[in-house]
Deep mutational scan, measured.
Amino acid sequence: MDSLVVLVLCLSCLLLLSLWRQSSGRGKLPPGPTPLPVIGNILQIGIKDISKSLTNLSKVYGPVFTLYFGLKPIVVLHGYEAVKEALIDLGEEFSGRGIFPLAERANRGFGIVFSNGKKWKEIRRFSLMTLRNFGMGKRSIEDRVQEEARCLVEELRKTKASPCDPTFILGCAPCNVICSIIFHKRFDYKDQQFLNLMEKLNENIKILSSPWIQICNNFSPIIDYFPGTHNKLLKNVAFMKSYILEKVKEHQESMDMNNPQDFIDCFLMKMEKEKHNQPSEFTIESLENTAVDLFGAGTETTSTTLRYALLLLLKHPEVTAKVQEEIERVIGRNRSPCMQDRSHMPYTDAVVHEVQRYIDLLPTSLPHAVTCDIKFRNYLIPKGTTILISLTSVLHDNKEFPNPEMFDPHHFLDEGGNFKKSKYFMPFSAGKRICVGEALAGMELFLFLTSILQNFNLKSLVDPKNLDTTPVVNGFASVPPFYQLCFIPV
């Protein structure tokens, strides 16, 4: 009986604490739906499609509103004006990374994606500088992407125009580009180590996009005490870190300090320079996690976009025909596509942009946080508050993009057929937390897609009208449904 009384008292205290925290903070924060004790607004949000729920709530509470995930307040920004004001106009104040408990377990605050403060700034600055020195957006990395595009075309030829699921092959190409940047090595598509790495990356994007992960991140005790797919994700990350550590040891034994070959060499050189400046942010643990982040951000996002792009091109054969006509006119058949071609191919450029806009790969991006107490639109948001960005509300804005739910390359073309930029184009987020590999991803999408369409016609196994382009999961990332196609050599 005594234990029951204690339990009831504990629960009562928890409920009172929950109510007090919510009521004391709500006077400062933007308005929002009334949260339930302990669980907050979790029942009012469709976990399978958070973005749709945010759109519905914005119609009631406006472009800036507050939700509670458990006891934790989260300020939501919906629509271009609110997102721009926060991420661009007040970029420094909104540059923090929001709480992501599962990532905390995986990387302990290291790396480039989930770190904060001085650690994040130094690692991000170093990573950007190193990638630029190796030619991100310049010639040397373009050579690597072109080489991988040629290998991709050869792998597709091996399908002999038979029906195939493109998931694996389209994942190999961007993964190999990242391998060449980090390890100075590309792998054969049949290499077992490479296959294991690909498998872990593919599993992780599916797990991260599941409703279960949303629950884990908002009720963090689940991570330590409950079984579930989150444990598989943590094991996959541990596998990748151990693999990278092996490569780091190989580099330490063979590195030429006067001739760095890749990202690992550059990081080890930085560690050597910083060894007298303790404590340094440049450690082996930081290198492991930064490399894992580059793999995660640079492989599955690009391969998922490529997979979605081919599905949309199957669905819209008239678009595919126009792209192939432009390829034939500008590039021809006797040389590989290059980035200089893009400025002469406005329709193809528009298609690449429209694919990214339409699929809305990361509907709410990753959570941000404010780095200080900030007054925002007459609300006071306390330091450390998590900020949720609705990228969907920007990419699918119906004023900027008429009929935003329709796939239409003319969203990025003017009346004369010239490519038209849009400030609403934010597939990689915006501001200080914009994806480090934005330029690389854009290069890969253009070169891989043009190389495929230069060499193959795409054949659907069903009537294009019957192809479903609805994402199968739409949590962290929008993942396309399973499909097969035939690559018919031109």
Rank of each mutant, 00 (worst) to 15 (best):
P427K: 01
E326C: 00
D360M: 08
K28Q: 13
L17H: 14
K421E: 08
I327V: 09
F183R: 01
K72A: 05
T392M: 07
E81S: 11
L43R: 07
R186V: 03
P31H: 08
V394T: 11
T159M: 09
K158I: 04
D373I: 01
Y225A: 11
V6K: 15
A238R: 13
S451L: 03
Q214H: 14
P73N: 03
E326H: 01
F126D: 06
S23T: 13
M198I: 06
C486F: 03
F482A: 15
N418C: 09
K158A: 10
K48F: 09
P480T: 04
F282V: 05
R329G: 11
V351T: 15
K232G: 04
Y358P: 00
S18T: 14
L77N: 01
N116L: 02
P363G: 06
I284F: 09
F487R: 00
Q324S: 08
S23L: 12
N133C: 09
L11H: 08
V5H: 13
K270N: 09
D165W: 01
L380Q: 09
Y225I: 12
S24N: 13
I141Y: 05
F65R: 00
I50A: 12
H344S: 14
C151P: 00
C372Y: 10
N196V: 09
P489S: 03
Q340A: 15
I141P: 03
V38T: 03
K48Y: 08
Y347A: 02
I39S: 05
G109K: 08
D49S: 09
H276C: 10
V323T: 09
P73T: 04
C266A: 14
H410N: 15
Y61I: 02
Y189C: 01
G171I: 02
F487N: 00
P163I: 05
N259S: 09
L440A: 02
V479A: 12
F476T: 15
I182R: 00
N196G: 10
F456R: 00
G109L: 03
L152V: 06
I99F: 15
E300P: 03
C164R: 02
L461C: 14
L4H: 09
E154I: 06
Q214W: 13
L87C: 13
T305L: 05
R150S: 09
S115C: 09
L447H: 04
T470M: 09
K421R: 14
H410V: 09
R186L: 01
E328T: 14
I327K: 00
N56K: 13
T470A: 13
S365Y: 00
S286C: 15
Y61M: 02
D49T: 06
R335Y: 04
N289R: 11
P31I: 06
F126G: 04
I112F: 11
E122G: 11
F168I: 05
S286V: 11
F219D: 07
F482L: 12
E85V: 07
K52M: 09
P221L: 08
F401H: 05
E326D: 07
E400V: 11
L391T: 08
A291H: 00
A103T: 15
C338N: 10
M129L: 12
N259G: 10
A369S: 15
R157M: 09
I488N: 08
D49H: 07
E328V: 14
K399C: 12
P409I: 04
Y347G: 01
Y483L: 02
A309F: 03
D143P: 05
T450D: 01
F263E: 02
D414S: 06
Y308S: 04
F446E: 02
D463H: 09
L395S: 08
R335C: 06
P464C: 05
P166T: 01
K28E: 10
Q193T: 15
M406E: 13
I213T: 14
L128E: 05
E203R: 05
S220N: 13
L152D: 00
P346R: 05
V479T: 12
H344I: 12
H184N: 15
D191S: 04
V5C: 15
K121R: 13
L36N: 05
S254T: 14
S127Y: 07
V177W: 02
I215V: 15
S95A: 12
T55A: 14
Q214I: 11
V352I: 14
M271E: 07
E354V: 01
L128A: 15
L453E: 00
A106I: 15
F226N: 04
T299D: 01
F425S: 10
A161D: 04
Y225Q: 07
L312D: 02
T304N: 10
S429K: 04
I207S: 05
V76M: 04
G40V: 02
F425C: 10
E288I: 15
K273S: 13
P30H: 02
G384F: 04
K160I: 03
I50F: 13
L131H: 05
